[in-house]
Write a protein that binds this DNA or RNA. Sequence first.
DNA 1: ACCCAGGAAATTC
DNA 2: GAATTTCATGGG
Length: 279
Amino acid sequence: MEIKQSGNNIEICDVEEFDLEKTFECGQCFRWEKNCEKKYTGIVYNKVLTVHSEKDKVILENTSIDDFEKIWRTYFDLDTDYVKIKEDISRIDPVLKEATNFSTGIRILRQEPWETLCSFIISQNNNIPRISGIINRLCEAYGDKIDDNNYSFPTPTVIAKLKEEDLKILRAGFRTGYILDAAHKISSGEVNMQYIERMSLDDAIKELIKIYGVGKKISECTLLYGFHRLDAFPVDVWMKRALKELFCNADRKYFGPYAGIAQQYIFHYSRMNKDLFKN
DNA sequence: ACCCAGGAAATTC
DNA sequence: GAATTTCATGGG
């Protein structure tokens, strides 16, 4: 991997295992939007970034080496060796090897913990276009305006001051109360993100479940995508089906220390190959 | 054990 | 064009 400055852009050359489309559209994030030129725009830590790829290059528009080192290198998880992780995962069994090869290029983004928690609360029993819609309305209404089209994700403190009625505009249904409880427990410190970082996986899962509306699934999504706990293993309807049909009902332990990444590969593979689950 | 909240988009029938 | 499904959880 080589980092080059080119005008206002940063180019990442000879980068392995970085497929933007798969990474942004495998269901781990909800705020990267594709435009007509196949460029993605997203907002992270109040920075707006547009990114696209050309052959073995990934181009970050209108950013600096400084921001690349401070934000994007970490966010895109560029210092993790996915080639090695894929080798480890592939050794577990041949079906997993196929799912892994199919999912080449997916990286687990290091998203902000609060945004991840809140987004996955919204995601429950919901589809991705609608999830994105609710999150966009939340940001536009209560986030900070960054530029004409972009808003930051509102902090728990800001949301904690709101009432159910203020969130009606989101059209989030029964999830509204869950969002408010999460904002209250995080902003008051009743659930402490810094402690969670240092907890064992099982304790961290339990800690997040203290929030009304957070069960095991949402808890593990938050830990995997928001805390980069690669052993967290969220099991949703797709995973349940895949575990049953393709992996003899294996559990988290079977998939080893990178169970979370294996989960992402299986999830993506299953969703893209629906005919695997006819009957 | 089941069923619903509250809602809409994509997919499947 | 209608029915089903959708990265679930909590309360009755």
